[in-house]
Computed example of a mutant assay.
Amino acid sequence: MSKNTTQIRAAVAREKGGPFSIETLTLDAPRRDEVLVRVVATGLCHTDMVARDQSYPVPHPIVLGHEGAGIVESVGADVLKVAPGDSVVLTFLTCGRCKPCRLGRMAHCEKTFPLCFGGARLDGSTATLDGQGEKVHDHFFGQSSFATYALANERNVVKVSSDVPLERLGPLGCGIQTGAGAVMNALNVRPGTSFASFGAGAVGYSAIMAARAVGATTIVAIDIVPSRLEMAKELGATHAINSKQTNPVEAIRDITGGGVDYSLETSGNPSVLHQAIEALGSLGTCGIVGAEPLGTEVSFDVNTLMIQGKGIRGILEGESVPDIFIPQLIELNAQGRFPFEKLMKFYSLDQINQAAQDSEKGVTIKPVIRLLAA
């Protein structure tokens, strides 16, 4: 092994829908704008399974993982933001140059797809080889953190306090900031208003906790799993609807006297999105964060949308500025107002396929893969 490479253990997706294989790989040293991170733990997200199953055209073989947290091992010559020894959360990568990035709306970066799903840097290069010297795709969301070490960019590392347990922080980089940011940043849910989360998973729960934190007074959770609805009430939902048993649109109209001010579709199910739009009251807004297959279309009543002044918002990564928003979520958690740790169950890297299975079955809300002791 060259002094310019690091030997890592990683979970590799090699075939569509297939299991992750645990392999020993070599990872190049960071370039001038890159950061090598010793990964302590990383969340496993629905988007990782979407990429594994190639619902998005992500190249294989690839190291996935995009909710990493760890310790900076080394940095490139041009990196000023962090230094070796710093605790960091890894988040989505952006170009920093396009119009959305320059407007502070980097979640909608024009290079999002190639940077996060291209399996390589923008110039097409990769940094990872397998035991036979063959290329393994990487840079998933600019990190590929299903590994003991990850190569990130200065733009997608967020420095955090070393006093906070790192193994809990990785999911803030995507799933948790997506749900919370949808409420706090994109929809801008106001005190005294009504909010409905269609789907009670990690993103939906994060949205519910955020809605409570900002002062929404009617918070409705919709799901088909009774245990998840019970937990939603523990986390802040004032009402819970089992959509297998009850028409959620009618129930929401009864609860609110006409419809909610804000709804969020987190499930990635087109029929559920239709319900989330229908459940809005006058001047209400529906946010969309559920990852659906490319080309998915949904119908809605145009006249109802116009007459009642309803809005529909596509939302990525909670429209957050991660360097600002992630520390805010950590502080809310420290104050007991955003208990995201209640969503997590921990697995070792060797248990990643069990973690994925548990997530898909709904047994585990937010699997977190431990890589190293902090």
Rank of each mutant, 00 (worst) to 15 (best):
M49E: 11
G259W: 00
I208G: 07
L169W: 04
R52A: 05
I255K: 01
H108R: 09
V225I: 15
Q354C: 06
H60V: 00
G362K: 07
Q7S: 14
Y205D: 09
A182L: 11
Q177Y: 04
C109F: 03
D28A: 15
T296E: 03
L169F: 02
I324A: 15
R38Q: 11
G236N: 05
F140W: 10
G281S: 00
V220H: 06
T42S: 15
H137D: 12
H108W: 06
T178I: 06
A207C: 09
A211W: 01
T218W: 01
E278A: 13
V298L: 02
S161T: 07
L64T: 00
S299Y: 06
V214S: 09
D130K: 00
L343M: 12
I352K: 11
V225Y: 03
A200P: 02
E167P: 02
S162A: 15
I176A: 11
S145C: 10
R168E: 14
V88A: 04
T193L: 11
G336N: 04
T42E: 11
G175A: 15
L80S: 15
C109E: 09
I352H: 08
V37I: 12
S145G: 01
Q335L: 14
G65Q: 04
F346A: 03
L280V: 00
I62V: 14
T94E: 10
K361W: 11
G119V: 01
C45M: 01
S194P: 06
D123I: 05
R105I: 12
F117H: 09
I71V: 15
V363H: 08
A13T: 05
I8F: 00
V157M: 04
L280N: 05
V82S: 08
A152L: 10
T217L: 02
V164S: 09
F92H: 11
L371P: 01
L93A: 13
T94R: 10
T266F: 00
V39Q: 11
Q351N: 12
S227L: 12
I241A: 05
T364E: 02
L169T: 14
M1K: 12
A77N: 13
G65K: 03
P293E: 07
A152E: 04
T47S: 15
C98E: 07
H66S: 10
Q351D: 15
M106A: 13
V183A: 07
V249I: 07
H139E: 13
A11S: 06
E319V: 11
P114K: 08
L27I: 02
R38Y: 02
I71R: 14
T364L: 06
G318D: 05
N156Q: 10
D261T: 03
V368C: 01
